[in-house]
Design a protein around this nucleic acid. Structure first.
Lengths: 158, 158
DNA sequence: CTTTTTCCTACCGGAATAGTAGGAATTTCG
DNA sequence: CGAAATTCCTACTATTCCGGTAGGAAAAAG
């Protein structure tokens, strides 16, 4: 199960994606940077009611993880560092919840050898690798862009 | 990530499956019941070193969950209630770790409505349903029998 | 130089995880 | 019968993790 942190992160990222799309479609200046129109924590909390302080730590994590950029001071806030399509959901989860794999010994990013088990012949290892791959097939393919998609709308092309 | 409970459970189930297969192949009496040759906790711990007391609670959980049967007293122990092929891995995980879905609002067996979110239009709900389905495609298909498979051996037919 | 924002460090209560302890109930076997 | 071997049951405990809070420092804008 995803932690509250990850759940809140996805909600917040949803509004950041919408802000990003809005900027790109409305902006007359082609070279407009995302950092020109950041979204503050206060604004996000207005849309998704939650603890401001808690969201603060979450967005900081996402910033340290390279997903968000920030601007301090008046008019400051957070913005996406990349196009929404270029941040897979897996990256968000790894930053906030750690491993996606069901076992440390089948994790790609947080691998730890398991004691008392020969991985080459361990049935559990093999099965849980399948589970991991099934997860990643979705989580590496789907991106922040998919968070903001209207399910009734035609598929968006980039 | 799977809990230690679930990990230990799979190890123990591995030896119970092997015992089950051995009984079926060696037994001359066709009507031999699994309850005739149960495997004790002590025997399991000999194969997979772990806390005896902890394993006790785990096997009890699996018994209450309908996966194992038991026999008390001298010569007693645990045995599979069904053919290994008929117990999907998902069932084991649900008993020991609860929900498989990444969010309560997309769980089939442990569903809980999420507050402040219209599931019909929630992008996260839709994406996490995909993740759940990807997981279940493996965990409902794969069974205890797959725990004991020799990876180099030809595929076993039932 | 005041206001608004992010950024940093530390803390805290409750729940969950990973066990442990002690004994009761049941079965087998000598 | 009585001893040994086993499961079964209830309760307890220690540690870690989760979810969140507190208080202020640093930076940017006007």
């Amino acid at each position: 199960m995803l932690s509250k942190k990850a759940q809140y992160a996805f909600r917040a990222l949803g509004t950041l994606v919408r802000a990003d799309l809005a900027r790109r479609s409305q902006e007359s200046d082609v070279d407009a940077a995302a950092s020109d129109t950041p979204t503050s924590i206060t604004e996000i909390v207005k849309v998704h009611p939650m603890s401001t302080k808690f969201l603060e730590t979450i967005l900081l994590d996402l910033k340290r993880g390279g997903i968000l950029g920030s601007k301090k001071g008046k008019g400051g806030g957070y913005y996406l560092m990349k196009h929404p399509e270029d941040t897979p959901l897996a990256q968000v989860i790894r930053i906030l919840d750690g491993p996606i794999a069901p076992l440390p010994c089948v994790s790609l990013h947080f691998y730890e050898r398991c004691v008392d088990c020969n991985e080459a012949v361990c049935g559990l290892n093999r099965l849980m690798s399948e589970v991991r791959d099934a997860n990643l097939a979705v989580l590496e393919q789907r991106s922040l862009a998919d968070l903001a998609v209207d399910p009734d709308a035609p598929v968006a092309k980039r």
